[in-house]
Amino acid sequence: MNRPPHHQPDFILDIEARASLLCVIRQALSAWCQRAGLDTDRTDRICLAVDEAAANIIRHAYAGASGRIRLSAFEERDSEPPMLRFVLDDDGTQVDLKTIRARDLTDVRPGGLGVHLICEVMDEAAWEHRPEGGTRLTMRTLLTPLGNEPTQENVHHA
């Protein structure tokens, strides 16, 4: 079976930005990850990172307004090393990209953990403003982990 080139996603989900639909995103993505051969632990962690990213879109980009979230997933099996790439696009309010960062975890307080979780699970996470409006988050992670721990230094602001 021919695999699509990297610019064509293997999986696309275009869904209303609503908290009650986060479970649908997780369930669909979980099925895709398992089909891609990931074990349960990796699948759960990726679903958590994407859930956090989508929740941030709902809370900050749309902030109660209606809108769409488009999730695309790519298997980059031909890259070296093979990677998985996840792209979330929204049409919401663009926030200052410099404000998107993992917070100091020694400060025990509610909230602000989402970006930290994304950066812990993914090997790369980059936010950029889309020229047509809204924001794009691109996350990449090794298809097969090497045992290396991702660091928050992998956060990039376009």
Partner: peptide, 12 residues
């Protein structure tokens, strides 16, 4: 399953 909003609720 719990995401960071659940964790934040328990921290509070």
């Amino acid at each position: 399953y719990m995401d960071s909003s659940g964790v934040a609720t328990l921290v509070e």
